[in-house]
Simulated scan of single mutants.
Amino acid sequence: MSTALAASTDDRVRAALDPLDGVGLEELVHAASLLTRVDRKYVLPADAAVRVLDELAGSTTARVLEIDGARGSAYESVYFDTPDLASFHLTATRRRRRFKVRTRTYLDSGTSFLEVKTRAARGTTLKQRVQHDDPAALGTGRVFVGETLATQGVDGAPHLALAPGLVSRYRRTTVLLPRGDGAARATVDTGLTWELDAPGAPVTRAVPHLVVVETKGGSTPSDLDRLLWRHGHRPERLSKYGTGMALLSPDLPDGPWRRVIRRYLAPTPNVSARTPGRTTDRSI
């Protein structure tokens, strides 16, 4: 059922954006590479997302990333953290020097990258990445990760014992958004699934009824941001890593993502309820 629902949601999203012209990857990167950017994330039920995207397609000159005739791509991200989950806890407690290390694989082509995300000035996100051969291991990429984190002021970066943990999978459509001061981009994710190794067997959670829209640009809101606001949608605190870990590991703090979890992610038999009133005031 969840697989069929995810496919249906993806079909509806693609149909809503079908009237828009395509844009090639080279032009998209040139217009809006945005490795340093302001991210705004929105969580929408499928029906609400389709209404917004229908209106976007009829009111702007936005274009959809198209590669070899395809307007969407399947993604897999493997997140790396220390045994005491330093990356997770830094994010859960909103520390300024928080970081995220992951591999990202474009499943349709098999191409993988090793990515390091950190917080830059004024709340912007800085992403740095290199091509990587083995998405399930850091290997020689540990040098890149250590040097990158050290440059960004992360304590003990070269010696962090990072190991693979949470895996997320989803299907993504990317939109180039015109703006008066340049261009922004947005991603539309459907079919999101999390998987985490646990004693006995992996724990998984799929949310095929939801669409995650993320706008990536400068401090000036994009046309899509303003359209979402007109429809009553506001940015949410959502981290695919943090939210997934908090959802699948009930003993972890969920503070920054509690609203999203309670509003959109109903409990399942694999996820027990938390004790009311839990806070994120927990040291690494």
Rank of each mutant, 00 (worst) to 15 (best):
D84F: 12
T105Q: 00
R97T: 07
T93G: 10
S77M: 11
S87W: 08
T91N: 15
P83Y: 07
R97D: 13
F80Y: 08
F99Q: 06
T93H: 11
R98A: 04
S87F: 09
L90E: 15
D84G: 12
F80Q: 04
D108R: 05
D81Y: 01
S77H: 12
L107N: 11
Y79W: 09
R95T: 07
R95C: 12
R97A: 11
R95P: 03
R95K: 14
P83D: 08
D108I: 06
T111H: 14
R98L: 05
V78L: 10
T93Y: 08
E76G: 12
Y75M: 12
F99A: 05
F80W: 03
P83M: 11
H89R: 11
S112Q: 02
D81G: 01
R97C: 08
F80H: 02
S112Y: 03
L85H: 04
A92Q: 04
V101M: 02
D108K: 02
F80T: 04
S87D: 09
A92G: 03
S87M: 10
S77R: 09
L107G: 08
F113H: 12
D108E: 10
D84S: 14
Y75G: 07
Y79M: 10
D81F: 06
L114P: 01
L85V: 03
T93W: 10
R104C: 04
T91M: 13
V78A: 08
T103G: 01
T111K: 14
R95D: 10
V78N: 08
D81H: 07
S109N: 01
R102F: 03
L107K: 14
T105V: 00
R98Y: 08
D81T: 05
H89V: 10
T103Y: 06
D84R: 13
L85Q: 00
R96F: 13
A92W: 01
T105I: 03
Y106N: 00
V101Q: 00
T82C: 05
T105S: 11
S112N: 00
R104Y: 05
L107S: 12
R97I: 00
T105K: 00
V78T: 14
S77Q: 11
T93C: 08
T91Y: 13
K100I: 03
R102N: 00
G110I: 01
E76H: 09
T91F: 14
Y75C: 05
L114S: 01
R97N: 13
